[in-house]
């Protein structure tokens, strides 16, 4: 595994990769911290300051992530490995709609489309509602007007 190329087992030290993982984790934490701080800020001055710091955190995290990807230290699974341009992959980027920059570091098109399919059709809510709250013979979709009027008492809360 390439991630252990700089590992020093004899000394009680972190590997280069682990150091960067730690810094990246810190960046993530601080990004959350600034995000909360922006939401809680009362004055524009403070909010703008936090927002600027937040932006810097994002850029720092991006730098760390890019560096780790260059060295193959970030195990993000096949999806990222395939689409990362700096890795020696012959696979072209597919569907660059979500690409934010030329580094190709945010390739999430595969998972995105998969989620879009399952949550896009409303099958889940329909079967859930029908199984739990409707009689067996009721063929109406849970969101249809007649169904709502007929079963007013059994209408679940999420139907509103």
């Amino acid at each position: 595994m390439a991630t252990r190329s700089s590992y020093q087992p004899n000394r009680n030290r972190l590997s280069d990769r682990d150091m960067l993982m730690d810094l990246l984790a810190t960046e993530k934490y601080m990004s959350h911290l600034y995000d909360h701080a922006i939401m809680e800020a009362a004055s524009d001055t403070v909010r703008d300051a936090f927002a600027a710091l937040q932006q810097d955190e994002h850029e720092t995290a991006q730098m760390l992530f890019d560096f780790m990807q260059q060295h193959g230290w970030y195990t993000t699974g096949a999806n990222r490995q395939k689409t990362g341009r700096r890795l020696q992959s012959s696979q072209p980027l597919s569907g660059g709609r979500l690409q934010r920059n030329t580094q190709g570091s945010i390739p999430m098109t595969q998972a995105d489309s998969r989620y879009a399919v399952t949550s896009g059709s409303r099958r889940l809510g329909q079967s859930f509602g029908a199984g739990k709250n409707r009689s067996q013979g009721n063929a109406q979709p849970s969101w249809s007007r007649q169904s709502r009027q007929r079963s007013d008492e059994t209408r679940p809360e999420w139907d509103y």
């Binding site: 810094l23 810190t26 601080m30 701080a37 800020a41 009362a42 004055s43």
Partner: peptide, 19 residues
């Protein structure tokens, strides 16, 4: 609250510098 967040952030920034 703003002050508290800033103090937290400052601590984390300093920790990061040290690391």
């Amino acid at each position: 609250k703003e002050r508290s967040y800033m103090q937290d952030a400052l601590q984390m920034e300093n920790l990061c510098i040290a690391k």
